[in-house]
């Protein structure tokens, strides 16, 4: 197994946010004709600097908590670490298999059954059909959904969907687990199971990056913490200084 590590240096991510007007070709054309301007520029398109010069180094066994207000760049950083957003400046270097749990609906087809969704997720994560079959029983048991796994996912509650997604994603022996907020899904019993899974991941010398607003969760899972404010990151600090960061 490769040793997990994350190295982010001088990461800047800017992206255009397209308003409803900017998404219409008709309006863009009308504007270009009437103003004589270039197509698709200016009106309705706002450039946002989501992350500015972020530096981050994590090694095997690190569990980083990301805190910050809504829109401070936590999710953007997670998406960048997953490989979905490419840097505008700087570099991201991640060693290890990445599993991202940023959005419950990844690969989830709500009309398909739980089993089919596990299969789909497994395929997306790079498992062969046979590898998925081998793990199916274990994943199915972990979800605790029993007979519901043969029913369409659209009949599931949010908590059940969370169980399914978490079970499928963490069954993949990922080295780097990226999670956004929703770890609080599921009932107390599932929380306990999830807790065990995450500890196992840490034992395997994986890396966890978790964005959340809840201090108890951070204290439970993380040994390091970083605060984002308007796309600017603080230093990576020990979790014991969490109260200091929250106060500041």
């Amino acid at each position: 197994m490769t040793k997990a590590s994350i190295t982010v240096s001088d990461l800047t991510i800017r992206f255009p946010v397209y308003g409803a007007d900017a998404k219409s070709l008709k309006k863009a054309l009308a504007r270009a004709v009437s103003v004589g301007g270039a197509l698709g520029r200016h009106a309705g398109v706002t450039d946002v600097t989501a992350l500015a010069n972020v530096n981050l180094q994590l090694k095997a066994g690190d569990r980083l908590g990301l805190i910050g207000h809504n829109g401070s760049g936590k999710t953007t950083l997670l998406r960048a670490l997953s490989g979905a957003y490419e840097p505008d400046e700087g570099t991201i270097d991640v060693h290890g298999r990445i599993a991202a749990l940023l959005d419950l609906s990844l690969g989830i087809d709500s009309t398909a059954t739980g089993y089919e969704n596990i299969r789909l997720r497994g395929r997306i994560a790079g498992l062969s059909t046979r590898e998925i079959d081998e793990r199916m029983d274990e994943i199915a048991e972990f979800t605790g959904l029993g007979p519901f796994l043969s029913m369409p996912v659209k009949t599931y509650s949010a908590g059940m969907q969370g169980r399914l997604a978490f079970a499928a994603a963490t069954a993949l022996e990922a080295d780097v687990l990226l999670m956004d907020e929703w770890i609080a899904v599921g009932d107390a019993e599932f929380q306990k199971l999830a807790h065990k899974r995450l500890l196992k991941l840490v034992e395997r010398a994986g890396i966890l990056v978790l964005a959340t607003h809840e201090a108890p969760l951070l204290k439970l899972y993380c040994n390091k913490v970083m605060k984002l404010e308007g796309g600017v990151a603080s230093e990576v600090m020990d979790i014991r200084r969490l109260d200091e960061l929250l106060a500041g």
């Binding site: 990461l11 840097p87 570099t91 991201i92 991640v94 997720r121 994560a125 790079g126």
Partner: peptide
């Protein structure tokens, strides 16, 4: 999620 064990992205 990806099967690759190394991901390098630069802002080049």
């Amino acid at each position: 999620m990806d099967s690759a064990t190394h991901m390098l992205r630069t802002g080049r």
